[in-house]
């Protein structure tokens, strides 16, 4: 049996990123941020509950997960700070690449993802917030995975 991998769509995105220079990468991320849509109203309404808020994220990001019938999850995000453009781009990337991936694949994603996407020069505060978004997503995946096993 092969080792679990990170979601295929994320692998492909990282490969694409590896060919981009810094300015191209920034343009690419802004395109993602432009695509970002807040959580739909059928999932959550403002004011969003504090327990969904990502800790230490200055962009006031929130994360939700909805279980799919096939055992995967669909993730939803909100970013309440209008200047939280990196958070928006990261949420859009996660939505596009890991929603509907297996829980095992989601749990395989390393925190290095933030550096792979945003570069090592990202500030600690900003990186901490983005890592918090990933950690929140993985907390949902971990919880669902445990429920499946029990």
């Amino acid at each position: 049996m092969s080792e679990p991998q990170i979601p295929q769509a994320l692998t492909e995105l990282l490969e694409e990123f590896s060919f981009l220079d810094r300015n191209e990468r920034i343009d690419f991320l802004i395109e993602y941020a432009d695509q970002f849509e807040n959580v739909p109203e059928n999932i959550a309404l403002r004011p969003y509950p504090e327990e969904r808020r990502v800790k230490r994220c200055e962009s006031q990001a929130y994360v939700w997960a909805e279980d799919n019938d096939n055992g995967t999850q669909k993730y939803y995000f909100a970013v309440e700070n209008p200047q939280g453009i990196s958070a928006k781009s990261f949420c859009a990337i996660l939505d596009n690449t890991i929603s509907d991936a297996t829980l095992e694949e989601v749990l395989q994603i390393s925190g290095d993802l933030v550096f792979d996407i945003y570069g090592r020069e990202i500030s600690m505060g900003k990186g901490e917030g983005l890592l918090g978004i990933l950690t929140s997503v993985q907390a949902f995946a971990r919880q669902a995975s445990k429920q499946h096993q029990s």
Binding site: D27, I30, I85, S86, S89, Y118, K126
Partner: peptide, 9 residues
């Protein structure tokens, strides 16, 4: 900025 995406956006 702290956020490198803000200016280009």
């Amino acid at each position: 900025n702290e956020d490198q995406l803000l200016y280009p956006a």
